[in-house]
Design a protein around this nucleic acid. Structure first.
Length: 274
DNA sequence: GAAGGCCTGGAA
DNA sequence: TTCCAGGCCTTC
């Protein structure tokens, strides 16, 4: 599940590899993942230069010449892979989008087994963004600790639901909310307004630390997530609760438990998190 | 504010 | 055959 650290890792790798490259061809093999009409993508993208690569929440943004921006959301199983034609064996299944470049024989593939990912093209800078991107909340790094605590103090929802809400913090998903809550010692079902200020500040700090470490290790590769070259992230080795079924808390040896919060699994330590 | 449904296809 | 996942929408 690509979340902020996975998307950030890919964005850095894309920046390294594709900055200043000019797109030669675009191939769309599956219309269901593009939210911009295919004719428009096919007409507008070829010939554009990649000026800047960035990230917003879980979206990768490629700023192209001509004030165009290509947005990529990897959904659950989306992968971006940069291939040399020489290293390509049989073409992989589930490739829905393919880009070639003027300066090199490499091509960029968007592969997505579940097809929950989306690709969109916007025009005119940040003025006319799609709803889904426009209503994203602040990046974790943009939240000041005190403001973060004060805001959560006004909310009655369960803390886990709020952290997952992209309008509150952009970029967190199931892995990093669970890991942040564990480090802060907060139970995922706890109502936000009933958490002490100090503990909310601790959550803010924990969130920053977890994300920083995860980016350092190239994200978490649990199932499908891969780097641009097909390699895996390493941060799953350092997960303290997420998906640690039947395992014990590294701090207190209690058995890691799971609860469902509106259909989503949360992992936590019943002793460390209250 | 919470829960259920939808999309999709691989794993159990 | 059932379950599951992220994001979004609808319904209660």
């Amino acid at each position: 599940m690509p979340e902020l650290p996975e998307v950030e890792t890919l964005a850095s790798q894309l920046r390294e590899e594709l900055h200043d490259r000019t797109i030669q061809t675009v191939e769309i093999r599956n219309d269901s993942i593009v939210t911009t009409p295919r004719e428009s993508l096919l007409r507008q993208i070829p010939g554009r230069t990649i000026l800047r690569v960035g990230r917003r929440g879980k979206f990768i943004r490629l700023d192209l010449s001509g004030a165009l921006t290509l947005w990529l959301h990897l959904g659950m199983t989306g992968q971006l892979l940069l291939f040399n034609p020489s290293s390509l064996k049989a073409e992989e299944p589930h490739v829905h989008f393919k880009v070639s470049f003027r300066e090199s024989p490499q091509f960029l593939l968007y592969r997505d087994v579940r097809r929950f990912g989306r690709i969109a093209l916007t025009e005119g800078g940040d003025l006319a963004l799609p709803e889904r991107i426009r209503r994203l909340g602040r990046e974790p790094g943009e939240w000041d600790g005190e403001e973060f605590a004060s805001f959560l103090k006004t909310r009655r929802a369960r803390i886990k639901s709020l952290l997952l809400d992209q309008r509150v913090v952009a970029g967190l998903g199931n892995i990093y909310t669970d890991e942040s809550l564990h480090r802060a010692g907060i139970h995922p079902l706890r109502r936000a307004d009933r958490i002490g200020r100090k503990r909310l500040l601790r959550l803010h700090r924990a969130m920053g630390e977890v994300l920083r470490e995860a980016i350092h290790w190239g994200g978490s590769s649990i199932d499908d997530y891969r780097h641009l070259d097909g390699g895996k992230g390493e941060f799953q080795r350092f997960h303290r609760v997420y998906s640690r079924r039947e395992e014990r808390c590294l701090q207190c040896r209690a058995l890691i438990r799971q609860v469902k919060i509106s259909g989503r699994t949360s992992w936590f330590c019943p002793k460390c998190q209250r």
